[in-house]
Design a protein around this nucleic acid. Structure first.
Lengths: 343, 343
DNA sequence: AGCCACTGTGGAACCGGTTCCACAATCGCG
DNA sequence: CGCGATTGTGGAACCGGTTCCACAGTGGCT
């Protein structure tokens, strides 16, 4: 491969001048610049980013740590991050972090610290305080999606409020027998998303004077098959069947709707279902949902990182920024039929 | 940050010995090694991969170019690639390539060439011969998933055979009015997947003496909503409705099933549906499908890249390796009911 | 005893850039 | 005309490692 010195020799200038001509920094005569550019083009010169990073100390590369790639929310966030990084001229190095804690340590110790990332974006992962400190100690900007995390800039929707909002939607329609299908705490290592949505559900129920005991809550995997299997189990018995389900994610909601159809239960006539996410399939399944925009969250996180990376001015404080949501009412929610209640 | 020279000073050895002790290459006395390791641990030394890459010429980093993240097949391939790369001690730099050709050039010229990848894995992207030559000229191993591409090692299922197989399955059940919902050529920049699956369909139909004219084929976006919308349009009219649909992907098949249910058409009693992929939702929808294993394809591609990267022995020839498939018969296919045919 | 192979170590060159600094030439202006 | 500011250029140091080479000590063998 050709190096800068080759370009310099061909253009009959010094390495210093060649470097200045190519980077655009410092004084270079037009004539010299033209010669350098022509020489570079002639031999197909490309800079070595390794050499560049070595001397400048920055690598124009951001690490993204994410637990899933194949779930809608995470995939969308990743797409948003990717497009924003490319636009900013940065590369994206991807680390998927499974629940396996040994692998987790390895990624953290080995890759993130050792490798050439300028910053880290953690999606849906609850970082320990020791891990946060480690990243801060390295001077690497770090932002999280799905916070809040102490000492870090994080973005996410307000899960408690979101859950309360959709629960209130069901309550205002007249439902009283409402169940929540939520995530299992141990399933993945993300934030307190699950418990917060459960808390919001319970708050809203309590505020309306409704029962939200243990019978009103089932855990499942937050995916379409997860919603399907819990739906099949819970909805099969007409005597205990609720009139409405608040699903912890749209994927669970869709699985529940499919299960209900399978059982011959009409949605929304006999069962209302509401989710959280704004999944691309929500429209197809007429799903009422609290929509968020994961791609936008990803882009926002990138901008926050860039602020701190470029950062002449002091960066914004490292706090949680709630992300807006909007309730999209579709055909999966309706007032409970008298017969359904009686049944 | 602490550098190797700091470690060397603290351990009272030369940089050369410190480097040998840490890398494990060359002769170092046990005593010296211990001192170096202790010194490194004490000051929290981590190597600079930039310096390392600069001198060794390899960066332990593989670039992955992929058109979608959020479609099941691509997400699964990506997961497979990621896990295999991490296991091999390599990083994964992600480039999403949209259909926009300007962006495509930019990624190619700017990032792939300029940046620090040791190899490139291209997923579902048809590379031009000029692009293949460019990568070869750089001496970077390159493998594709979803081939074949001339001059490149590629992995994919045999799309013609796969399409013929599922079509034969429908034919052997007694169906004669079969339609194919396939991908639109212009929709994305992947390989000739769409046209090959169409060709396989037409071959199988012709071999059975069945009509596979233009009326037997509809294009759509290869996603669940895509299958849903084409399903709603095509299945609405009972007079022209086929008794079986071969969907170009499981996502299209699932969308078609949902559309059929919506129209009150029973699957499989009134309509058989078969897909290709082995989607995670296939089981839930009782979908008969030709299963492939995208994650395994990703892992295989990584191994192929590693072979060439480590490669003392001459690497395997750069040809297409067909990937195995298996027909998983579930409840979405059945012999056509006499009534359905008459209707 | 003499020679060679092996082990262990440090000095120095090198990878490919960026940037500091010294120096020269030109220019504007009092 | 003289002087300081501006422009343009090259030499050399440096980023942080790896590795070649020279050299010294030790041991095994004839």
């Amino acid at each position: 491969m050709s190096a800068l010195s080759d370009v310099a020799r061909l253009a009959q200038v010094s390495k210093a001048t060649a470097s200045r001509a190519l980077s655009g920094r410092g004084y270079v005569s037009d004539e010299a610049r033209d010669r350098v550019l022509a020489a570079a083009a002639e031999i197909g010169y490309v800079v070595s980013t390794n050499a560049q990073s070595l001397v400048t100390g920055s690598s124009r590369n951001v690490g993204v740590v994410i637990p899933f790639i194949n779930r809608w929310y995470f995939g969308d966030v990743l797409e948003g991050i990717e497009s924003a990084l490319i636009a900013a001229g940065y590369d994206l190095t991807l680390y998927r972090l499974s629940a396996d804690s040994a692998e987790r340590r390895r990624v953290f110790d080995y890759f993130l610290v050792r490798k050439r990332v300028d910053a880290v974006i953690a999606v849906g992962i609850e970082l320990a305080q020791s891990e946060v400190r480690m990243l801060h100690a390295l001077g690497k900007p770090t932002v999280g999606i799905g916070g809040p995390i102490d000492g870090m800039a994080t973005f996410s929707i307000d899960d408690v409020a979101a859950a309360a909002l959709v629960t209130d939607h069901l309550i205002s329609l007249g439902h009283t027998r409402i169940m929540h299908f939520g995530g299992d705490q141990s399933e993945q290592m993300d934030f307190r998303v699950h418990s917060q949505r459960l808390a919001g559900f319970q708050q809203a129920m309590a505020a309306a004077g409704l029962d939200a005991g243990p019978d009103a809550f089932r855990t499942t995997v937050l995916s379409i098959p997860g919603g399907y299997s819990v739906g099949l189990m819970v909805l099969a018995d007409p005597r205990t069947r609720p009139t409405a389900v608040f699903a912890g994610s749209d994927e669970v909601a869709i699985g529940t709707i499919v299960a209900a159809r399978q059982l011959g239960i009409q949605v929304p006539n006999q069962l209302s279902v509401v989710g959280i996410d704004g999944h691309e399939l929500a429209d197809m399944f007429s799903l009422t949902t609290l929509a968020q925009d994961p791609g936008e969250q990803g882009r926002l996180a990138v901008h926050r990182v860039m602020e701190e990376l470029v950062g002449q001015q002091p960066a914004a404080p490292r706090t949680w920024t709630p992300f807006p949501v909007r309730l999209e009412v579709r055909g999966s929610t309706r007032a409970p039929a008298a017969s359904a209640v009686a049944q």
